[in-house]
Amino acid sequence: MSGFFTALFDPAMPFVRNAVLASLLSSLLFGVLGAVVTVKRVAGLAGAISHAVLGGVGLSIFLASRGILPDLPPIVGALVFAVLAALLIALVSLKAKQREDTVINAIWAIGMSLGVLLIAKTPGYADPMSYLFGNILLVSGRDLILLAALDALVIVLAWAFLPQIEASAFDEDFARTRGVKTDLVFLVLLAVVAVAVVLLQTFVGIVMVIAMLTLPAGTASRSAKSLAGMMLLASLYSVIFSLLGLGASWALDLPAGATVVVISGLVFLGASGAGLAAGALRMRRVRKTAHAKTGLQDCVSGASLSGPKEGA
């Protein structure tokens, strides 16, 4: 691990500092956006958007390599596919809720398959795995600026509309009766998720985006007392998981994105397991107390019934 800290302050290795900065900036997005995605129960929607992005990336590199659109960067295709997926999901979710699951799964599978097909037909070597898990060590200064801008936008939106977001996630019908434009809240959320997914997948990969949108927030929900607290705690967990993952991947020569996902997943599963065990213990204690009380009552009622008989 000491090698990681040496590299962090080595002027010849700016990419390590960029990776750490990207971890910090993306942690804020993962924490705030992840908390909303979790309580609003739209993680499946975010997953579908993030996997549809692979179709856009595949199409971009295919068109560029064939000389049809030679200067087309993958991020443009990713953005187009993310926005189209978000629009389609929004349309189905708002107008035909009963078909939502089917459409989400279809977008998820078709987007990913299309990406794999187009990447396979692209001349030269292109590895779909690099898009699935990304490479945080390749983050540029421009990426960091874009991330910081998206962080600022998400923080402003969360700060200004926290009560409306909270109410529409808790009870959408009631929020509507209070005049909240819940459809607009949903559309803005999907749009921000789509843009965040596109930006984040270019350097942390599609799998890590969806994992980090759900795992730190899921872990935070076990101890947070409010949505704002969950956002802060999820951001903090995300920072810890990302930095631990980066350090471990550097020390053990492992892919950074996959290492971060595994650490986040293990902590989430550990916290969930501990929560379940604590719940089971609590229930056992409650049952034991209830049983003891019932037993005591039986003894008391037994004594009162048998007492006079014996005495008679």
């Binding site: 996630a169 808790f170 409010s226 949505l227």
Partner: peptide, 16 residues
């Protein structure tokens, strides 16, 4: 609602 939603009673009442 999501049972993992951390929200206090006071916060729910404030939604009114």
């Amino acid at each position: 609602y999501d049972p993992a939603f951390p929200v206090s009673v006071e916060r729910v009442v404030l939604m009114g």
